[in-house]
Design a protein around this nucleic acid. Structure first.
Lengths: 147, 147
DNA sequence: ACACGGTGGTTGTCGTGTCAACCTATCCCT
DNA sequence: AGGGATAGGTTGACACGACAACCACCGTGT
């Protein structure tokens, strides 16, 4: 049962789709890194932590809320811990609480306006409201599990 | 001169945008890898090579045509060379020709239908023609250099 | 002749991500 | 009580990508 190869038009769509994500992400990431030394993932973790009241969260909850693999998060946290952006507290056995350090919070606050500016410049301000609307809808569709 | 933080709606758009690219790419990549052992980048390079008639191309041309950094391509080719997917021929001094090997071509042919199926399943068939149209247009807009 | 700049590639280093293996603790079943 | 299964985390190995340094070779200009 042979599958038809992608048509030229389908190929164009595929390449467009690939590019779209990649270079916007790269630009925003570079902006943040250049201004603060934080990487995209660093910023993501810090934001999520700060967004949750006291700036502390169970590691697993954190992983789920970012859609990350536990291993990925563990590696990332180890690196962030070395740079003193976060701390790990072992609450009970098998329960690790991730805590935003003072230094981490400062870095985050410094990065926030850069991030906001970059996202607007590289994404939001370039698109019409209808296009943005479509993006959100499409993202929801594509995020669903396999049918 | 303070910059306003991203509004909740802007944040939702940003997260949607981030997710969209990442997980479609991941799914297609996993499909190809599971079926053929090729990674996404591997497949990209092989396709590009095969798409150019005799399956050989100057390294620099290849880099440009994929929008890659020369260093990135060099690393990638070294890895692919070890797995005998491609060869490097030194034509003249300072000119390296990348050649698709027999084995590389076979792998590519095996991967093509998988790729086509996966792209359709994870992207094309889930969206309406208008949504696809918007994606392409948005990608062109976002791909432009800074204003 | 000689310095200089640009071009084409390679290399090393580091941060990142995925995958599989592993280690404990807990829960559940008989 | 014993024995899986499963949950929460860590670890190691490896692919990937960005960046900067480097090398070798060509031009040019003076």
């Amino acid at each position: 049962m042979s599958i038809k190869p992608l048509s030229p038009h389908e190929l164009r769509v595929w390449h467009a789709f690939k590019l779209m994500g990649e270079d916007v992400m790269a630009r925003v990431g570079r902006d943040i890194a250049a201004a603060t030394g934080l990487s995209g993932p660093d910023f993501g973790v810090l934001s999520r932590l700060a967004g949750c009241g006291k700036g502390e969260m169970r590691q697993q909850t954190l992983a789920e809320s970012m859609g990350w693999d536990k291993s990925r998060l563990s590696h990332q946290l180890t690196r962030m811990q070395e740079r003193e952006l976060i701390e790990r507290l072992e609450a009970e056995k098998r329960v690790v609480i991730v805590v935003l350090t003072r230094h981490g919070r400062e870095k985050l606050e410094a990065a926030r306006p850069i991030h906001a500016g970059s996202v607007r410049r590289n994404l939001l301000s370039r698109l019409s409201p209808e296009q943005i609307e479509t993006i959100v809808r499409v993202s929801n569709i594509l995020g669903e599990d396999d049918e």
